[in-house]
Amino acid sequence: MTSAVLQVSDLRVTYYTDSGRTRAVDGVNLTLYAGERLGLVGESGCGKSTMALALMRMIKPPGRIESGSAIVGDETDNVDMLKLNEEQVLQARLSRIAYIPQGAMNSLNPVMRIGVQMIDAIQAHRPKATKTEMREQAEAALESVELKRGVFHMYAHELSGGMKQRVCIAIGILLSPKVIIADEPTSALDVVVQRQVMETICKVQEKIGATVILIGHDMGLMCQITNRVAVMYAGKLVELSTVREMFTNPMHPYAKALIASLPNLDNKGVFRGIPGLAPSLLKLPSGCVFHPRCQYAMDVCKTTMPQQSVTKSGRYVYCHLYDKDGNQVSGTPLIKPEAVTN
């Protein structure tokens, strides 16, 4: 196994709002290895973006990172994003961990040429670099995302949505970070362009050997792109497993419902939504947060929060149906991927 490049442990983020405290990210543990692509999925408001922001140290009041650590880098050279001071954080961003925000393509400055915006980013990290060096670096980044060097001189409005998204990826990889977080990079794009952009991300990632965290709710995309999938629900990580395991044998009831709700070619006209609504983070249900919607809910689920189970193959799951080694607790209903009925 290659070395870990991102170790998140017990990450907690709380927003202090007028109507109460909301735990947007509640005790998330994650380890990512070099060259891996992780998909982070969940319904809107489940805390996926908050988690990404926390890793970047970009949580603003009323939000606060309560606890946890996020170690970026391998054994020889690493930093804990959550313990750095302001100055160090600025240095670590982009050079160690890059974030491509949601709707990034609309974040380009319309009155600045693309190149100027890219050089801005390089200058902040390499103040001594000469103009030609910076320009070369920026153009190389543009080339690596399959854009022409000429894009350097263009304005954002001269580019199509897919091209703008690629410019944002190019900015993200300027300094070859070890971790790239892409927050719904293709949610506003067409399928064909989406495929082009995703293929670009994968190619670039392989080239610089980074880890990608792909945030989104399109399970289809996750299936095609990622190696592992983490499912979040109401601020908690409920399951983390490889794509194959997730799609063939989901362990957590929510993951299972999510997989079952996916349309595919064989189950035409069968719509299986997840009954109920995601809880408001202000008023979380007692015990396991998923129990009001869970078809396997037991009495213990209503009162006690499930502990993390780790299976032999390294899957995490938080559910009372499993003991701490990830074996099914005897006497509980067996979760099987439901056969497709037509």
């Binding site: 399928v191 996750m222 997989i259």
Partner: peptide
């Protein structure tokens, strides 16, 4: 178009 749909199916690969 159809080839670019990310199907949530491990058997159907992209591209």
């Amino acid at each position: 178009l159809i080839d670019s749909i990310p199907w949530p199916d491990l058997k159907l690969r992209w591209g």
